[in-house]
Structures are given as C-alpha cells and as structure tokens.
Amino acid sequence: MLNIANTPKFNPILIALGSNLAGHSDSPATQLDSAIEEISMNSIRVVARSRFFRTPCFPAGAGPDFINSAIVCDCELPAHAILTILHKIEQDAGRTRHARWQARVLDLDLLAMGDCVLPDMPTYSHWAGLSLERQMREVPPELILPHPRMQDRAFVLHPLMDIAPDWVHPVTGQTVRSMHAALDPQELAKITPISS
C-alpha cells in the first residue's frame, strides 16, 4: 500500500474510474484497464491502482452494476489539462453524455489534487452542500476540487482505501480512512472485490 502521507514533495492526484457497459472492450473491467493504460500515456504517472470492485448502480435500477477502481497519479499538468485528458479518454471509449447518472462505458472523475481547492472555497462549499435532489438535477459549470461528493460515495472511498487511506481532505481535514469509516456499513457490504 502506498503511504502518500509520508511521501515528501508529492502532490497526489486522485482519480476514480467506473464502467458498467463494455463499449469497445469485452467487459467493463477491460475498459478500466485500458483507461488506466491510456492515462499513463498522457504525461500522467500512475503511482498506485486499487483493486476492481463491483458496486450497485446508482440510482438503483439505472443500469447494471458498476466496476469501480481508483488510481493515485503524479504529474506537472494543471487540473484543467488533466480533466481534458480524462474527458478525451472517455469520449474515445464511446461515452456519451445525455443524462445525469446514466449507464456509461467509462467514467473518469478527477477527485483531488493534493490540497488544492478549486475554483475557490465558497464555490466548493456551495456544491458540497447540495441536497441529493439538487445533485440529480444540477451540474457544476466548472471543475470543483476536491470532488464535492467524494466523502459520501462508498464506490469512491472503498477503492481509495486500497491505495490512499491516509490522504487528507483539504477542506474537512478528514482522511480517506475516517471518511470511509463514517459510511453506512450496509452500503459498504454491497461492494465486493473482483479480479480484473
């Protein structure tokens, strides 16, 4: 396990990956493997990757179960350049964006870049404080870092426990470990590791 808390001069980039449609690959897991390989070919060094986990689709009934994973990366690119790379990889995999939380070939979320808060604290706080109902209708017009809902999502935190349990959220001060411990045990029980 990578202990990023004790790694000097390292500003970890956390990326969550998910897929519940095979797309151009033979399975969602293969789709994630391909995405990780493509990320590493774009001036982004993949430092650690989690296991793959099967997680229930959210919201329930919106599609087949997801395969989720997470990676820790290092690079010199700014956040918006990384996001552009991730969106291009999604598009090349066949992802289309028609509805919020639809089934998807590939979902790559830039979760965090070390202790960076973007675009500013008031904007972050606004999006982090939205009710679930508003989350389902509204999409931020700009990149928000850290991801404003990461602390609520078992399918994000469970893979991060494999590779970055000691990463500290720059706004709340909580580690991945403490955010994970605060999740509903019944939701965590629905997440199962799989072989890639």
Rank of each mutant, 00 (worst) to 15 (best):
P146V: 05
V139L: 14
R100I: 07
A103F: 05
R100E: 04
M113I: 15
K88M: 00
G94T: 02
M136R: 15
Y124M: 05
R149Q: 14
W127K: 04
R97A: 02
R97V: 00
P122N: 09
Q102Y: 07
Q135A: 11
K88V: 01
A103M: 06
P141G: 11
E142K: 12
P146E: 07
D92L: 02
V117F: 05
P140G: 10
L108C: 05
P140M: 13
L118C: 06
D109R: 01
V105I: 15
T96Y: 10
E138F: 01
A103G: 10
P141K: 09
M121K: 15
P146L: 02
W127I: 08
D115I: 09
R149D: 12
A93T: 02
G129N: 13
W101R: 04
P146D: 11
D120S: 12
E142N: 07
E142A: 14
D92M: 06
D107Y: 07
E142D: 03
D120H: 10
L110P: 12
R134H: 14
L106I: 04
Y124F: 15
L118R: 14
P119M: 04
H126G: 10
A99I: 08
D115C: 12
M113E: 13
C116Y: 06
D92H: 00
W127F: 13
Q135G: 11
R134M: 14
W101I: 01
R149H: 14
H98S: 02
S131G: 09
E133Y: 09
A112P: 05
V139C: 12
T96A: 02
H126D: 08
Q91R: 07
I85A: 01
T96R: 05
G114M: 10
I89Q: 00
I144T: 06
A128G: 08
A103L: 02
R134K: 15
L86Q: 04
S125D: 14
V117H: 12
E133C: 03
P148W: 10
A93M: 09
L86P: 09
L111A: 00
M136N: 12
L145I: 11
Q102M: 00
V139R: 15
H87D: 01
